[in-house]
Design a protein around this nucleic acid. Structure first.
Lengths: 277, 277
DNA sequence: CTAATAGTGTCTATTAGACAGTATGTT
DNA sequence: AACATACTGTCTAATAGACACTATTAG
């Protein structure tokens, strides 16, 4: 035995243990608008996710989240910040840790454990700042009982994923997902995607995370449709306005020229003292 | 470049990258009863956490959560199951992943990233099954604004931790914790502890996780006081019974001999179809 | 004028909070 | 009898859901 910690550390050889690599993957979410063909109608909104086309093996030509190895002298939670900075040129992005996936064979190269993060951005902030292997995909989710179909589409590609939700009682989490169909997403990113979408859906009601996806000024109609697209259901106007009213402040600006009554522009109040929990 | 994935993998050398080690730490929570000195009064309840005294460097003689290295051929989420099995001899324990901590210097030996898990058990199920370096500590939390004092006590030891809660707007999570005082907990386990307690406190209202800490049969009074001790506040009887009524079923058994009116014993209904979300 | 969204008033249903009361065992 | 908890009834307050109505613009 050793006399003290200093001596112990001196005799300690890290090579004595089997070691592995660690990566960070980031699911970058935003909201996109689809211009309507009717000049009166407001733009349809979708959630969208940023995917990168893999140029190298493994999973060459498949799509995945932006990600990379965690440096040996880099804090884990700093890795996604660096990766996003590199990928989008932005540095003040909302980030939260999602899950650490460590199935033995999730990467064919070697043992790699990956911590996934969720990032929420206003897409318009990074117009033209994206690397050219990155692309926004619109998300469409169809749920039928425990079978979930996710469609991801960009200008030239449609990705389809079919996942089964399995309720678990006594294990790692409330439910697990089994990927039934997935031709185009690399690694275990299909699972991560669904996991992240569910997390956001849950959190949207008791946090203010949506505002990370909103521009500085927005109408309540726009804000509501972002909530709707995250929750996957329509909300009632009066109820929504009641609930949201404490979180936003009206400005004197107006949005006009939309083919119908103009609406007031609002700002996120933020910084406000939040209730406990 | 390589012709295909197979060739790529053949040429791939994991040694080319800097690598690290991974551990899993488990915060095992349960509820303990304190016999009252008044024969009429019901036992006082506390949350309790299982700690292990470190017998080796680093952090020799300090306390920490049960944990261990993740095997190179072991799924990450299987590691806590193995460790708990080894530590408590039980294998059907509720487990959920809490957070992955990866500060560069969190372990003085070398770069070790650790995924922490929460386990919830009924303490009585593992009476006498614990290894003798493990001990249950009762938890007492005092919150005053953003200063949180946690006291952990067992028969012979009192551990005190003082932590400051820092609100964050645009970073990894809603708030971060800064440990102000901690003499007795090893690694970053003080942070993990608080993080886990907050997670459970949040989840208790919209999930059925408490029942993992309850014995097969329990009175509604007992169940209520578990909720109270997790939430850190008293609940009103009628409201509690209204809410809980759908989750439990009354049995014909009664708890008697308590110095006051006997109460019906209930069971968790479980398996019931849960609402969405 | 019309289509479409903006924005508000109000009724109802549901849920949460509060309090008071009755019930029933042990010592 | 007295204490302590078990358990219930009911009133009130707060919140969520639903619907109808008015307002206002571009074309």
């Amino acid at each position: 035995m050793y006399k003290n910690e200093k001596e112990f550390l001196k005799a300690y050889n890290p090579e004595d243990f089997e070691r592995l690599s660690m990566t960070a993957d980031i699911m970058v979410l935003s909201v996109s608008s689809y211009e309507s063909n009717n000049y009166r109608k407001t733009d349809e909104k979708h959630m969208s996710v940023l995917l990168v086309k893999r140029e190298d093996y493994p999973f060459k030509d498949k799509w995945c989240f932006p990600g990379g190895f965690v440096g040996i002298n880099e804090n884990l939670d700093d890795a996604p910040i660096r990766i996003l900075k590199n990928e989008t040129n932005l540095s003040d992005i909302y980030l939260e840790q999602l899950y650490t996936n460590g199935e033995v064979n999730r990467d064919p190269r070697m043992r790699i454990i990956s911590t996934s993060y969720i990032a929420l951005v206003d897409k318009n902030r990074l117009e033209g700042k994206l690397k050219d292997n990155a692309s926004w995909f619109d998300i469409r989710i169809l749920e039928e009982k425990d079978i979930i179909d996710i469609y991801l589409t960009n200008q030239s590609k449609e990705i389809h994923i079919k996942i089964k939700r399995i309720l678990k009682e006594h294990t790692t989490d409330r439910y697990a997902f089994e990927v039934l169909e997935n031709k185009d997403l690399a690694f275990d990113h299909a699972k991560v995607l669904l996991n992240g979408l569910m997390r956001i859906r849950n959190k949207v009601n008791y946090t203010d995370i949506v505002f990370n996806m909103m521009p500085e000024y927005f109408t309540l109609g726009e804000l509501q449709s972002v909530y709707e697209v995250i929750l996957g259901k329509k909300l009632l106007d009066p109820a929504f306005r009641r609930i949201i009213s404490s979180k936003v402040k009206k400005t004197s600006k107006m949005r006009t020229g939309e083919g119908h009554r103009p609406s007031a522009l609002f700002q996120y109040k933020g910084k406000e003292k939040n209730k406990n929990s």
